[in-house]
Write a protein that binds this DNA or RNA. Structure first.
Length: 111
DNA sequence: TTTCCGGCTGATT
DNA sequence: GAATCAGCCGGAA
């Protein structure tokens, strides 16, 4: 791997940080922006690997294509934590950990 | 180095 | 809408 070439990881993190508060983005969205529309799973893997250390990255604003908090985390309460963070940003999350992408989907970039 | 799995997505059936 | 297939890139074994 060349270190002078921007990896997917770096690009993904950069885009995730550009997600405005009160909005959520999908893995595919970020992946597409990073250059690979099918690499959504990589985005998930990256965010999970980051952990809370990279707190400057709003990983909690990343949900899957259905608006579901697909985060796996190391604890079963991680989703509840993410839900609270989103609710605090005026993002409605129901009991199923589902977000209404029609309303909060981040479509201010490619859409 | 190779191989396999995975927090996904889009297209097709 | 649900099920299936293939492609994407990274990390662990």
């Amino acid at each position: 791997m060349s270190k002078d070439s921007p990896n997917f990881r770096d690009l993904v993190l950069d885009f995730v940080q550009q997600v405005p508060a009160g909005k959520v983005a999908t893995y595919g969205q970020i992946a597409a922006l990073a250059g690979s529309p099918r690499a959504g799973r990589i985005v998930g893997g990256i965010l999970s690997s980051l952990g809370m250390e990279e707190s400057h990255i709003p990983w909690w604003r990343i949900v899957n294509r259905h608006g579901y908090l697909s985060i796996k985390g190391h604890s079963a309460d991680i989703k509840d934590f993410q839900r609270e963070l989103l609710l605090r940003e005026n993002v409605q999350v129901n009991d199923e950990y589902l977000v209404d992408l029609r309303q909060f989907g981040w479509q201010g970039l490619s859409f």
